[in-house]
Design a binder for these strands. Structure first.
Length: 114
DNA sequence: CATTTGACTGCGT
DNA sequence: AACGCAGCCAAAT
């Protein structure tokens, strides 16, 4: 027999174009970043209605290899900690706008917010 | 259930 | 411009 809580649960599961848990949502957003563009950790968090930039970093640390991890950069435009080399290489490969020092993304042109 | 831990951020020095 | 620091928040211990 059905209960109110059953109905609620079904309703929620029937819905989502968007995954329900934090990890899946983060990965979904990152997966949606087009080639040549980037989002900051904070942007990704904001995109899923959160302010947990650091938690986004945690997710990337664990599941980053499942997505285009280099497209998520720091608010300064610098690539993910410990992956600067590889990230810059990929930026060059997909034509991402890079700042003067050649060590960071030019956020004013490559950044997208949603 | 309390504490510690980060692929973060913004602000002050 | 580099560095330290406190605030932040979900996940791991």
């Amino acid at each position: 027999m059905s209960t109110v809580s059953d109905a609620t649960r079904l309703d929620v599961r029937a819905n989502p174009p968007l995954p329900h848990d934090f990890v899946s949502r983060v990965l979904a957003v990152v997966d949606g970043i087009p080639s040549g563009r980037v989002m900051t950790y904070g942007d990704v968090a904001a995109a899923i209605g959160s302010r947990a930039a650091r938690a986004v970093g945690q997710v990337m640390a664990r599941h980053g290899d499942e997505v285009a991890w280099w497209r998520v950069v720091r608010a300064s435009g610098e690539p993910a900690a410990g992956h600067g080399r590889e990230a810059m290489r990929r930026f060059a490969a997909e034509g991402t706008a890079v700042g003067r020092g050649g060590d960071r993304v030019d956020l004013s042109s490559a950044r997208i917010t949603a």
